[in-house]
Design a protein around this nucleic acid. Structure first.
Length: 885
RNA sequence: GGGUUCUUAGCUCAGUUGGUUAGAGCGUCUGCUUGACGUGCAGAAGGUCAUAGGUUCGAAUCCUAUAGAACCCACCA
């Protein structure tokens, strides 16, 4: 016991005053720091690095709480736990933010140039990039902060380039002029995964394209009228009778007056639109493929910002695509070439970052060949070397990995890992020989071929995910550390980045390290608001976790989120649900407070720990060990939500509702030695219980752990030994005795409640049984508020009494003058009906010969025993009911 | 169009390989200043497990179909 004046322990737990104190203590003592240590098993997690543009939201809370729970648990279980934190430079997201920031200052990215712009980016990162990390600390996460990493740290940067160079040399990386998803807002290519498809209510426009030297038309349908300025063909299905006669003829493209061919291609769906398709090879993926097949001219009509370039008639030049659309429609209408328009719903790809519709756009980009790299990554998941939780994500993963396309890894941005490729633009005489670019981690001094020092580096940077895919091992400082910590144990992440990140980390790990990056992947739930909408800034339904922590405490928030989040299902969250966690914390607090208040007068004495115990002590220890077994199984299976419920039920129901209530009997009426022995045991168990709670609620458990016993400097529950289940302490006979007591107490309470007997009124009860021991009777008297308890095998039912039957024990409560006979009759009647129903069901089952023959004999035996029990109970209830008449 | 998941009490969800009278929390109702806690205690009400078939001695659980919901992938110019 510490010297704290216990009278000053507040009635309610106050999180704000304890959280900062303990977090500071933990960091000072470096409990979260890990160094390789051959004598201990590592347990490693790398954080999914939040973007430096991010602020903490509820998703982070869930995700990081789960990681912290496992890291803290494993640390307490004796592993060398290492949780590496860090942040992601988030190329496109950050660049967008910085551009917007500079725009407010009237500065343009292009005017100040690359170097100056990058300075602004770093400044921005210094200023805002650490916010989310500071916020995370409020949650109590036990990251090894000495290991914090940033994806643009010098050595990490180099590692990313090294990976690029290696893949290039192995032939997996190539450059090509291809159609990519182009984001006109950020003027950069983006990957397929960065495109979100939204359903848009648009129109389908039907245009007449006049045939050359004829007064006939072909009518084509389109949702993108403006692209007609880049049309270089009209396609029809080869089997379409309507159009056979037009194949290989020419049409005159309106507004442009270009002669373009009509050709046949299987791709065209006869049923859709008019069955004739305008073909714009430069601005549509399918058109591009047809263009290649039929050797059509490919005319790019857009600038990088999707405004029209000089390849269109003068009046359209410089227009943005939306105004151009209006103008094209208007002009065609004026020329009576607009046949009709109809409403049409289609899906438009939007840039995840730019928020504008993407354009299929032809440009020079770097790609990574994926099929060969993906194969082993598919296998390790199929074979279960990496396990997904919940496992159904395996199918999604398999589907994607078996249909994987080449990855566009270049971005036309400046903030990021600049592609380590140099082109010789040197002396005129060598131009022909130096077509091969120089690919190198270090900046080359001169051209390998001609010696020219006039080299120009590729302007583009790598896709962010082409850096974070190395996160699982390049966060570690050197080869030796990687040997020790890699593969990591657990990855906790949201399922929406399964392709962006999870799959690519597996690919990278297998390719570069020849080993899986992690053994288990926990896919978190999606946090939604109370009515099931995704949390978003624009809806304003996303609570600020820091406010929630302020109001309810970090422990309450952590516990509540996990309590509400079953594996693999969405969570409907609202701030007031944090009452679950807050109330639970308060319950724990007060249980501790109760024990400590009693220990003020009766000091604990460890030499008495094994003395003067009774069945209730044995029972609670037995229950605790059951709980540990269930808890461990749940955690092993990543049923973390189930684990919270197991803890909650033990603490609240077993420990508080029963054990402490029973303990009061002895605390108020025994010798000091008995009291001391009891308190010693209770506080010891409470301490073990706190350890079980600690990974979930680190602050309150640490605070109480220090309050219940004087700890040495440097001691902490966070590095204490997690209790291991001891099967020898499971005690069926104590559990039996306890259950019997609980059932009798509950039955008497039920009668009291139903008969409206005030709690203050002490009553007499008769138990017809030889089984009830005197020590059990004491508890029954206290908890059921009975002052006179008559126990005998030949108790006669007193008249005008309420009754109940527990196993073969009959309970009578004489209530002369008080009893409402009608109420008691109804109560019994209800119970009888219930039992009769149950009995009828089981009789039917037992009289079915097929059941008796086919079912497992144990099941049949159990059913028979049950039937007899119920039969006895029913008869007794019936007698009691009759005696009231 | 393809795939995944889901549908159990008013609400949010448990329910392990089929075998107790289908459970919990919140909410509701009744009672309680019981010497840890009203952020609490005791008691109660409330469900033909989405629907229809099937397999089985036995189905909330397995199979099929239907309806509804969510998400993912691919796409129709």
């Amino acid at each position: 016991m510490t010297n704290n004046a216990l009278n000053e322990i507040p009635k309610a737990y106050n999180p704000s005053s304890t959280e900062a104190k303990w977090y500071k203590y933990w960091l000072e003592k470096k409990y979260f720091h890990s160094e390789p240590n051959k004598s201990k098993n590592p347990y490693t997690i790398v954080i999914p690095p939040p973007n430096i543009t991010g602020v903490l939201h509820m998703g982070h809370i869930l995700n990081n709480t789960i990681q912290d729970i496992y890291i803290r648990l494993k640390r307490m279980q004796g592993n060398n736990a290492c949780w590496v934190p860090g942040t992601d430079h988030a190329s496109i997201a950050t660049e967008t933010k910085v551009i917007a920031h500079l725009k407010e200052l009237g500065i343009s990215k292009y005017e100040i140039g690359r170097d100056e712009f990058l300075k602004h980016c770093w400044e921005w990162r210094e200023k805002y990039g650490g916010i989310i990390i500071q916020q995370l600390k409020k949650l109590g996460v036990s990251c090894d902060w000495d290991r914090i990493r940033f994806t643009l740290d010098d050595d990490y940067y180099k590692a990313v380039l090294k990976a690029f160079v290696q893949l290039y040399n192995e032939g997996y990386i190539y450059r090509g002029y291809r159609m990519v998803n182009w984001c006109p807002a950020s003027k950069s290519a983006i990957s397929d995964e960065e495109v979100d498809y939204k359903t848009v209510n648009g129109k389908l426009y039907y245009f007449r394209y006049p045939l050359k030297d004829s007064d006939e038309y072909i009518v084509v349908a389109t949702t993108r009228p403006e692209t007609m300025l880049g049309d270089t063909g009209v396609a029809v299905n080869p089997d379409d009778e309507r159009y056979k006669k037009f194949i290989d003829k020419k049409v005159i493209l309106p507004l442009v007056n270009r002669e373009i061919p009509v050709f046949a291609d299987e791709y065209v769906d006869k049923e859709f639109g008019t069955g004739a398709v305008k073909v714009t090879p430069a601005h549509d993926v399918n058109d591009y493929e047809m263009g290649i097949r039929h050797k059509l001219e490919i005319i790019n009509i857009f600038n990088e910002d999707a405004s029209f370039n000089n390849n269109v008639p003068e009046e359209f030049r410089g227009l943005d695509r939306f105004n151009a659309r209006k103008k094209v429609i208007q002009k065609l209408d004026e020329a009576r070439l607009l046949a009709k328009t109809e409403d049409y719903q289609n899906k438009v790809g939007y840039s995840q970052r730019g928020g504008v519709p993407i354009e299929p756009y032809l440009s020079e980009q770097w790609f990574m060949k994926m099929d060969e790299l993906a194969k082993p990554a598919l296998d390790v998941v199929k074979e279960g070397k990496i396990k997904f939780h919940p496992s159904h994500w395996v199918k999604t993963y398999e589907h994607w990995m078996s249909n994987i396309k080449d990855w566009c890894i270049s971005r036309q941005l400046w903030w990021g890992h600049r592609i380590p490729v140099w082109y010789c633009i040197g002396d005129d005489h060598c131009k022909l020989e130096c077509k091969q670019p120089i690919v190198s981690v270090e900046t080359p001094a001169e051209c390998q071929h001609c010696g020219s020092k006039n080299l120009k580096q590729d302007e583009d940077v790598l896709d962010t995910w082409a850096s974070s895919w190395l996160w699982a091992y390049d966060v570690f400082r050197d080869e030796k550390e990687q040997q020790y910590y890699y593969p990591t144990d657990l990855l906790v992440t949201a399922p929406d980045i399964i392709f962006f990140w999870v799959a690519r980390m597996i690919i990278a790990g297998l390719h570069f390290k020849n080993n899986i990056p992690f053994r288990d992947v926990y896919f978190t739930s999606v946090i939604r608001d109370e009515v099931g909408r995704k949390m978003s800034k624009s809806l304003g339904n996303s609570p600020d976790p820091l406010d929630v922590i302020e109001e309810y405490g970090a422990d309450a928030l952590r516990f509540t989120v996990i309590y509400l989040a079953p594996l693999g299902q969405d969570v409907l969250f609202s701030v007031d649900k944090c009452e679950i966690g807050r109330n639970f914390a308060n319950k724990i607090w007060n249980a501790g407070r109760f024990l400590m208040m009693n220990a003020q007068n009766i000091p604990v004495n460890k030499s008495l720990a094994d003395k003067h115990s009774d069945f209730s002590d044995e029972w609670i220890i037995s229950r605790f060990n059951h709980t540990l077994i269930d808890f461990t199984r749940a955690m092993d299976n990543y049923e973390i939500n189930n684990a919270t419920k197991i803890i909650y039920a033990f603490v609240w129901n077993d420990f508080c509702d029963w054990y402490i209530e029973l303990a009061k009997n002895r605390l108020y009426s025994s010798s000091d030695e008995v009291k001391s022995a009891l308190l010693t045991r209770a506080l010891s168990l409470f301490g073990e219980m706190l350890k079980m709670i600690h990974p979930f609620m680190p602050f309150i458990s640490e605070e109480l752990w220090h309050l219940i016993e004087k700890r040495k400097d440097g001691e902490s529950i966070s590095v204490s030994h997690f209790p291991a289940a001891d099967k020898n302490r499971i005690n069926p006979s104590a559990e039996h005795e306890m259950e019997f007591v609980q059932e009798i107490i509950t039955a008497i309470r039920n009668i009291r409640g139903e008969m409206n007997i005030p709690p203050s009124k002490l009553i007499t009860a008769h138990l017809k049984s030889a089984e009830v021991k005197s020590y059990q009777a004491d508890y029954i008297k206290k908890l059921a508020k009975v002052d006179e308890l008559v126990i005998s095998a030949d108790v006669k039912k007193p008249k005008a009494s309420a009754s109940a039957v527990i196993k073969d024990c009959e309970i009578y409560i004489p209530l002369e003058g008080l009893i409402d006979l009608e109420a008691e009759k109804q109560r019994l009647q209800k119970e009888i009906i219930r039992l009769e129903g149950a009995l009828a069901g089981i009789d039917k089952k037992l009289s079915n010969e097929k059941f008796v023959q086919n079912a497992n004999p144990d099941v049949v035996k159990k059913e028979r025993l049950k039937r007899d029990d119920w039969q006895t109970q029913l008869e007794k209830l019936q007698e009691n009911l009759n005696s009231l008449n």
